[in-house]
Nucleic acid binder design. Structure first.
Length: 284
DNA sequence: CCGACGTCCTGCTAGC
DNA sequence: TGCTAGCAGGACGTCG
């Protein structure tokens, strides 16, 4: 599932292959994606040269020399890749943007939770994110993070998944962040001490940094812009490890449903009360 | 205003 | 062996 590290990896992969290239033509499937595509946008893309590729949260922006922006969201199963000339077109390929000097940029998305949208200017693009998207995890100040957590009656899982608080964390990295911070994802925001809230923010940053270094996590569909898979799934401590021994204390990892999502955690290391987790530490 | 929950979509798998 | 129900979840709309 593409979250911040996966989208960042796609952006990094695409830059050397796409910057300076010109879009020659657009070929689209007849299937609708999450956001509807305006036929008129194709005219705005053709003839344009890619200038930069930006990322905000899980949103990708391909910025063109005419000022326009092609915004891409990978949803659940989206793949954005540059393919050499004559590469067979796979099923569920919804967009093909023919490039000068051969090859094409392709968007493939089995579940069609992803989207492609065009904005006439970079300013229009950033404006569209206001109100929907909070700061990047490395940009939020510890004090405004603490304030957001302390002011919430929701559980930590819901807070982490809320893109308006911090942008880019999804189900996998929410679980991994809680594990690393040794916090029970069922705890409520206002229950956290300042020290615990700080620990959680530091854990988010550390987990995402490590995941980017591993090119993200490939569970099933995810691949980078050069088709290379991620490797962070090898480092999962919580996500998808239901009933498997905790890597720290060997207690079986638990799975519960929180904020409508499967949530994995160690009931010992991420105990709700600090005394129990302290005892667990001493036991080691 | 806030928080909880349903919806979209397809492929895979558990269970009979 | 074949069928089907249920599950996976990001963003957003709706409901209480």
């Amino acid at each position: 599932m593409p979250e911040l590290p996966e989208v960042e990896t796609v952006a990094r992969d695409l830059r050397p292959m796409l910057i300076g290239r010109r879009f020659l033509a657009v070929v689209r499937s007849n299937k609708a994606l999450r956001k509807s595509w305006k036929k008129d946008w194709e005219k705005q893309l053709v003839g344009q040269v890619v200038r930069t590729i930006d990322r905000r949260g899980k949103w990708l922006a391909i910025c063109l020399d005419g000022g326009g922006v092609l915004q891409v969201h990978l949803g659940m199963t989206g793949q954005l890749t540059v393919e050499p000339p004559d590469t067979p077109v796979e099923d569920h390929t919804h967009f093909r943007l023919e490039l000068d000097r051969g090859g094409e940029l392709r968007f493939r998305d089995v579940r069609r939770f992803g989207s492609l949208t065009f904005f006439p200017s970079h300013e229009e693009w950033t404006k569209s994110l206001v109100g929907h998207l909070g700061p990047e995890p490395w940009e939020i100040s510890p004090s405004s993070w603490r304030e957001a957590v302390a002011g919430s009656r929701r559980n930590l899982k819901a807070i982490l998944l809320d893109q308006t608080i911090v942008a880019g964390v999804g189900n996998i990295y929410a679980d991994e962040s809680c594990f690393r911070a040794r916090l029970d994802p069922r705890r409520l925001g206002f229950e956290l001490s300042e020290e615990e809230a700080d620990r959680l923010l530091n854990a988010i940053r550390a987990v995402l940094t490590r995941a980017i270094e591993s090119r993200g996590s490939s569970i099933r569909d995810y691949i980078g812009g050069s088709r290379l898979k991620g490797e962070f799934q090898e480092e999962f401590a919580a996500y998808g490890r239901t009933d498997q021994p905790c890597l720290v204390c060997e207690t079986p990892i638990m799975c519960v449903r929180l904020a409508g999502r499967s949530t994995h955690f160690c009931p010992q290391c991420q105990a709700k009360n600090e005394v129990r987790s302290a005892r667990a530490k001493r036991k080691r």
